[in-house]
Every structure is written in structure tokens, then in C-alpha cells.
Amino acid sequence: MKNINIKSALFAFTLLTTFVSCDNDYKEEAPSIASIAVTNEAFSTLEAAAIQGGVAVVLSNPNPNDPSGDYTVFAPTNDAFARLGLVDGGSLGVLQNSFLTNTLLYHVSNGNLLANQIMDGGTSTSALGVDRRFVMREGDLYINGSKIIITNVSASNGTVHAIDKVMLATGVNIVESALLMNDAKVFTSPELTFLVQAVVTSGLAPVLADENNRFTIFAPTDAAFKAAGFATVEDVANADPSFLQQVLLNHAIADGGTFTCEQTSTTATTAGGNTLTYSPFQNGVFTILGNSNTTPANMVIPDILCSNGVVHVIDTVLLP
């Protein structure tokens, strides 16, 4: 695939020469999925996550929920975890264990799903029960917003595909997803407290919680709100609700919810009737510029799947 750096290419060569074989009896001799993470340095954070999240033993054994006894795992590399600030096993302490476990299960599915069975626009149900969707863009294959960089690594209990970003899914609506972070049920240090208050004060909570309304949401962090002039959460609570509504609607696109790899236009019309301008798609993300911004917003955490859309956490408030 295109745009794979030297480190990834060398890693792919090592995996392929170590684990790929045409011998029909080879699979029985191959290591388990968990063992692949243990024996490959590029998966060391995943190994630590599997231990902390309580799924290492599961992925060491045959799958009791599938006649084949196999799993398919879309495995985030160390670089993928580092994009979330999780640079090693010790960094995983910022995540709640229940959230970490569910996140890992979202990367797992029953049976063997080989690369030649994956089609653009297709879906796959995770062990968490929440679907993932596949997107082909510029010759690269993505699952949700994560690029599949290595395919078909054979294990004794299934198949591993390596991906370049950790997939995140909350299983609840956009408002409840923000509340999960605000209430420290996801990250131990929540960063969306100001946004949650803005949603409440603006009166938009029912709209953003409605399962019939499906949005792409650009969610500013607390630091972004502070940079925009809101020194405290109380400042947000005391702001004019109509003003906050105008600002928040400038962060919502009523397009059904799109992952970064699905966004091909250079502009988008917001739910408030304004325009956002996107940079070219690079390294799986893009920057976003509001009409009254001089500096574009960067994505802090892209591609969080909610039950009624997709949320991208950003570092700048998008001004109408």
C-alpha cells in the first residue's frame, strides 16, 4: 500500500517472512494472536493493553463462539497508540479499564476475515456487537478511519491485520459520549467538560442525543474553549444560550456521520448554515478552518464512532 514509511515496511517484511506460509499444516504451528503481540516489538503497547484490559488470555486460546475456533483482530501498532498519547504500557493508566476492554473487543471479530474478503463499503461486526465499516481511498483500505497497513498475518487461532490508528466506539449517542469523558468513565482526566456545559446551556442536548439525527461533530477540548476566551466552566454556563448554540452548530455537519477517510470535499456546510474549510487529507486526518478563524483546528482524537454519528476531537473552537 502507498504511504507506508520505512519502519512500517521493515515491520511488514518481518511479519510476512515470519508468519506467512502456504503449508496447510503451518497454521497449527503458528503462534496465537496474543503471542504475536508478545513477540513483536511493534505491538508492545497492544500487549500491555490486552493484559490490562483482560483479553490477553482470550486471544491466546481458540474462539469458543465460532465454529472455526478463530478470531480476526485489527491490531493497532505502537504508533497507533502513540497518536492517542499512549506511548507505552505505562501510559494506559489514563484509560478506565472497562473502556480499554471494550475498545480492544471493538478490534476483534469472530471467524477469519481475510483481506480478499474485505470490500469497499462493507461492514464487519465486532465482538462488542458494534459494526465497523470499510472504506477504500486512494488505493488504501480503511476500517472506520484506520488504515489497514498489513494484512493476513496467520495465527493459530485466527488472523491479524495491523492498523495505524486505534478504533474508538462509545456505543451511545453524541451527548452521552461527551458525558462519558466528562464523568471520567473513559479517560481518567476528562477534557470535554467545557463542551458538555456548552451543550447543556445552549439547549442543543436533545437534538444531539436524538438517534434520528446523525451528525459529524468536531468537538473542541477544554483548552480550545479557554483559548477562545472561556476561562472557566462557569463562564460557559453563564454565556448567552443563543450565542453558544450558534457556535456549537458551527461544529456539526448533518451528513450522517463520516470518518476522516470518507471526507473528500474541501468544504462542508454546517448545521448553522456556515462553511468549514478542510485541508487536504494527510496521514489519515485533515485540519478544519471556521469562517472567522485565522488558524485551523487540528484533530486531537479523530474518528470516534457514536450511535448517531462520528465525533472528531479538535484543539480549536470553530468560529462562525
Rank of each mutant, 00 (worst) to 15 (best):
N173P: 06
I217N: 11
E234F: 15
T193W: 11
M181D: 10
R214V: 14
V172E: 08
D235M: 06
F194D: 11
F215M: 12
K185W: 06
M136G: 01
S154R: 07
D235I: 05
G229P: 02
K185F: 04
A178R: 12
V200M: 13
A155W: 00
N173T: 03
A219T: 08
A223W: 13
A205K: 15
V130D: 13
A228G: 01
I143Q: 03
K165A: 14
N173L: 14
L180D: 09
F194A: 14
E234H: 13
V207M: 08
D131F: 14
P190A: 01
G139Q: 00
V135D: 00
M167L: 13
G158N: 02
T193R: 09
R133P: 02
A219D: 07
N157Q: 06
L168C: 02
A155Y: 03
R133G: 02
S177E: 02
S156Q: 06
S126C: 11
S126Q: 13
D131M: 13
V135F: 03
F187T: 04
D183M: 08
R137D: 01
S156K: 14
V233H: 03
S189W: 09
K147G: 07
G229R: 08
F187D: 10
T221I: 08
L195G: 09
V160W: 00
A162T: 14
N144M: 09
E138S: 00
V135L: 01
A198S: 08
Q197L: 04
I163N: 00
A198K: 07
L208H: 11
M181C: 05
F215I: 11
N144I: 05
S202F: 07
S202E: 11
T151F: 06
L168W: 10
F225H: 04
S126R: 05
M136P: 01
R214Q: 10
V172H: 07
D183V: 08
S154Y: 09
N157K: 00
L195F: 08
V207H: 14
S189G: 10
V233A: 11
F218A: 03
N213K: 11
T232P: 06
N212T: 04
T159I: 15
G129M: 09
T159V: 15
I150V: 15
R132K: 12
S156D: 09
E211A: 15
T216E: 11
A219K: 12
N238K: 10
A184P: 06
D131P: 08
I143V: 15
S177A: 13
V236S: 04
F215R: 12
A227M: 05
R133E: 11
V153R: 00
A237W: 04
I143G: 01
R137T: 00
D131Y: 14
G158A: 13
Q197M: 05
A155P: 10
G171V: 00
V186C: 02
A223H: 07
V200L: 11
V175M: 11
N212P: 01
T232E: 06
S126G: 15
Y142H: 03
F134K: 10
T159E: 01
A178F: 07
E176R: 07
I174E: 06
S189M: 13
S146M: 05
M136W: 12
V196L: 08
T188N: 15
K185L: 14
N212I: 02
N212V: 03
